[in-house]
């Protein structure tokens, strides 16, 4: 038998975008330490539903730590108290019986709350659409390894590409800056030969869109790197800056 615990939850409840939200207190009873944080919320929601109350609304999808849908600022930390973990992969054994847990949505002007704990993260999609892609000709399937890429470079690109776009970087940053996300998306292509064609156009277009969405600027506190569930590095931000400044100062190109 695993340990059971009773918890007090202070959860942000907000009907919709326009209404003012507030904290509501819930009791989570007989929670198993083997549950994930989201499963714990499921238990609370089941109770709420039985009582005829509106369940707490939160984002989730894969519950395997790969899709980037889950969020939540738990006791002041995006994705909770563990490093390198998404909320869906956070287990209740990291909490203790009788603990009070404060649960808030991501807070950023660019991520408006839709309902309760779910925020609108389409700003990230618009940034991606601005330049987070490469153009290729359709047709026959190209041969694997047709373009030689050194392992070191491939690894760097892969590391940047592991970003799941959850937005924890924005949530953690005191300026609600999206620099880590945008830089990872720029870096994954900047490293690779396939990304060269639109390289400088991409950096400018994505940074422009990031600013247009109203994210703050990067102060290099490193909070994003520390809270990122997949370990995206600050080096990406240095690379983004270099790409952007190079584009601006030495080879300004128009953007689409």
């Amino acid at each position: 038998m695993s340990e059971q615990m009773n918890l007090t939850l202070k959860v942000w409840r907000q009907k919709n975008k326009n209404e003012k939200g507030r904290f509501v207190t819930y009791q989570a009873k007989e929670i198993s330490e083997d549950m994930s944080f989201l499963e714990m919320l499921d238990v609370v929601n089941e109770e709420n539903t039985k009582k005829g109350e509106d369940p707490i609304y939160f984002d989730h999808d894969c519950r395997e730590g790969i899709c980037g849908m889950c969020s939540l600022v738990i006791n002041g930390r995006p994705h909770g108290p563990e490093y390198g973990t998404t909320t869906c992969q956070l287990h209740m054994r990291h909490f203790h019986d009788g603990q009070t847990i404060v649960i808030e949505p991501w807070r950023a002007a660019a991520f408006p709350v839709l309902k309760d704990l779910a925020v609108d993260r389409t700003a990230f999609e618009r940034i991606q659409q601005a330049g987070g892609y490469i153009n290729i000709n359709t047709g026959g399937v190209p041969d694997a390894n047709e373009i030689p890429i050194p392992k070191r470079i491939a690894d760097q690109a892969f590391e940047s590409a592991t970003c799941i776009g959850c937005g924890a970087c924005v949530a953690a940053c005191k300026n609600a800056s999206a620099a880590l996300f945008v830089s990872a998306k720029i870096a994954q292509f900047a490293h690779l030969p396939q990304g060269q064609t639109e390289r400088y156009e991409r950096a400018q277009a994505m940074v422009d869109q990031m600013d247009a969405e109203g994210f703050g600027s990067c102060t290099n506190t490193g909070a994003c790197e520390a809270e990122c569930p997949v370990g995206i590095k600050l080096d990406n931000i240095a690379l983004m800056n270099k790409e952007y400044f190079t584009a601006k100062l030495f080879r300004e190109e128009d953007i689409h």
Binding site: K10, W12, F23, V73, N75, G76, V102, E104, R107, A108, A109, A110, K174, N175, A176, S177, G214, F215, G216
Partner: peptide, 9 residues
């Protein structure tokens, strides 16, 4: 302005 509503915790 990028974070008009702050965190409680």
């Amino acid at each position: 302005a990028a974070r008009p509503i702050g965190y409680n915790q």
